[in-house]
């Protein structure tokens, strides 16, 4: 590390301009890693959560396992995988997906459990089959809570992607790590701030998406059904 670098404390704006194509490429990589993780996370969580919702006994073991996964610091999780999957995108994705599961499963189950019983009963009384009940009544009504989970999972993943720089991926984390190694604040800030901006933007987009797909929950704010209540013990997965 070159501590003697003369212009150390200042930001080199020209570096940003000179490297804009690299920055853009890493930005896209960051988005790809995030979207892939959340998408796979959803593909896994939805069936598991639906099963756990219908068969209550399954919920505790499921959340225990995913909870332990969630508690393991990301660097350790990646380290577990490295000897087997190496410095590949699989290593990064297995870890990242692992972190989305607890959040998504909890919120999907909470969303389903929060469907008002009168709506459920009326639907049954009108002759909804159990599949129709799930996809036409329960899942749509669970959407706001599920979307809250998707938002949390996505923002979490955006942050965690930076850590994958240590296993050769990293998206914007690449700049943070190389900035640390060369004592170059410009790169650190570019990596951190763009990651922050990405997290905030994606969160905003998901809020917008949620509003679009749940127009009913917007109308007459005062009469909104309260969101279903669940436990609060999920800590943020930060590192």
């Amino acid at each position: 590390m070159n501590l003697a670098q003369a212009d150390r404390p200042t930001i080199k704006w020209s570096w940003i301009g000179d490297n804009s194509d690299k920055i853009f490429a890493r930005f896209i990589e960051h988005i790809e890693l995030t979207v892939l993780a959340v998408a796979i996370g959803l593909l896994i969580s939805v069936p598991l959560a639906i099963y756990a919702y219908r068969h209550r006994w399954f919920y505790t073991p499921l959340t225990s396992v995913t909870g332990i996964l969630y508690t393991i610091p990301s660097l350790a999780l990646f380290a577990f995988l490295l000897p087997y999957t190496g410095l590949t995108v699989q290593t990064a994705e297995i870890g990242l997906v692992g972190y989305t599961l607890l959040i998504l499963i909890r919120n999907i189950v909470a969303g389903l459990a929060g469907v008002p019983p009168d709506v459920r009963e009326a639907a049954r009384g009108m002759g909804f089959s159990s599949g129709q009940m799930l996809w036409r009544v329960e899942m749509p009504l669970a959407l706001p809570v599920i979307m809250a989970g998707v938002r949390l999972a996505t923002v979490t993943t955006v942050g965690l992607v930076t850590v994958t720089a240590l296993i050769g991926k990293g998206g914007l984390g690449f700049f943070i790590l190389s900035g640390m190694r060369t004592d170059f604040i410009t790169a650190i800030l570019v990596g951190s701030i763009l990651s922050l901006v990405l997290a905030v933007t994606v969160d905003g987009l998901l809020v917008y998406l949620e509003r679009r797909i749940t127009p009913w929950s917007r109308s007459r704010a005062g009469q909104r059904r309260p969101a279903p209540k669940t436990q609060s013990s999920i800590g943020p997965r930060v590192a």
Partner: peptide
């Protein structure tokens, strides 16, 4: 399921589907 589709059912708490408009609710069955 078929039996129920042929029988009108109204409950005290109504159970309208909050995610569907009034027209869609009426059109359920």
């Amino acid at each position: 399921v078929e039996l129920r589709r042929g029988i009108g059912y109204v409950i005290q708490s109504i159970g309208l589907m909050p995610h569907r408009t009034i027209a869609q609710n009426i059109a359920t069955v």
